[in-house]
């Protein structure tokens, strides 16, 4: 490990970006698993997608090609489509049940 000031002033290692991506992804997954509000859960998924995008861009940098940028562009488009449909679904759920608590949306049982 070089001395701290050098680390800070120099260029950032690529692995930092990847670790950040992993951290955000894990946060998103945690949000998905532990949050009860449907919209928050959905946003956690978006956070995960963002984390993935960061990985794509970072890998693109490493490989010196811009394919990763295109992938994350596709991811955005897909996320947009998902958001449109997902929010519409959330609207119908709310209309039918007047709640956004995921635990209360559980009429389907044996």
């Amino acid at each position: 490990m070089p001395p701290l000031p050098a680390v800070i002033h120099g260029p950032a290692p690529l692995s930092w970006y990847l670790i950040l991506s992993a951290v955000l992804f894990a946060l998103g997954a945690a949000g998905f698993l532990f949050r009860r509000n449907i919209i928050t859960v959905f946003m956690s998924i978006e956070l995960m997608l963002n984390a993935v995008n960061l990985s794509f861009i970072a890998f693109s940098y490493k490989l010196g090609r811009n394919d990763g940028h295109i992938f994350s562009f596709f991811v955005m488009v897909v996320a947009a489509a998902e958001a449109a449909v997902g929010l519409a679904i959330i609207l119908t759920v709310f209309k039918n049940r007047q709640t956004l608590e995921i635990d209360e949306v559980s009429s389907l049982k044996n």
Partner: peptide, 30 residues
């Protein structure tokens, strides 16, 4: 209500899965 609940669960878990798939794709790409 059954329909909307089904759609919601399908959607949330499906998107969640997609995120994992993508993360894997990103790593394979890298």
């Amino acid at each position: 209500p059954r329909n909307s609940e089904a759609a919601l669960k399908y959607f949330l878990l499906g998107s969640f899965a997609t995120a994992f798939l993508l993360y894997g794709v990103a790593w394979i790409y890298g």
